[in-house]
Amino acid sequence: MLQATTITEAPAPQPQGSNNHTMNGITEGSLQPQECGPRCSTRCSNTQYKKPCLFFCQKCCAKCLCVPPGTYGNKQFCPCYNNWKTKRGGPKCP
């Protein structure tokens, strides 16, 4: 006696939710820890205060696994990076 075999299709991939911010292939939380150094070097390249900028950028990147593109602004692409504040309420991440 033959058994009937049923074939089920895999569900179609769903688009990612709108809470993932992407720019130039950068998604928040998508970096590997070893990628923080080069990204922070780029981020801090135009500042006079390179040492503190690099220190805090790398600290923020290690936590958020994201560094906003460019040398200034664009923090909307990394909400974790943008929302981390100092005790006084100022931005922790450059």
Rank of each mutant, 00 (worst) to 15 (best):
G37M: 06
G37H: 07
P38Y: 15
R39K: 12
R39E: 09
C40S: 13
C40H: 12
S41P: 02
S41N: 13
S41Y: 13
T42W: 12
C44I: 01
S45N: 10
N46W: 06
N46F: 11
N46I: 03
T47C: 11
T47V: 04
Q48D: 14
Y49N: 15
Y49R: 09
Y49M: 07
K50C: 10
K50G: 08
K50L: 11
K51W: 01
K51Y: 02
P52A: 06
P52Q: 07
P52L: 07
C53T: 00
C53G: 09
C53N: 03
L54I: 01
F55N: 15
F56W: 11
F56N: 12
F56K: 04
F56L: 02
F56A: 13
C57Q: 04
Q58V: 03
Q58P: 04
Q58N: 14
Q58A: 10
C61H: 05
C64E: 00
L65N: 07
C66Q: 03
C66E: 08
C66T: 01
V67S: 11
V67G: 13
P68D: 08
P68Y: 09
G70K: 04
G70V: 02
G70H: 03
G70D: 10
G70W: 01
G70Y: 08
T71M: 10
T71H: 13
T71E: 12
Y72K: 07
Y72N: 02
G73V: 03
N74F: 14
N74I: 00
N74C: 09
N74R: 07
K75T: 12
Q76C: 04
Q76Y: 07
F77C: 08
F77V: 05
F77P: 01
F77E: 02
C78S: 08
C78G: 09
P79V: 02
P79E: 08
P79L: 08
C80P: 04
Y81T: 02
Y81G: 03
Y81E: 01
Y81M: 00
Y81F: 15
Y81A: 04
N82Y: 11
N83A: 07
N83K: 08
N83Y: 14
T86W: 15
T86N: 15
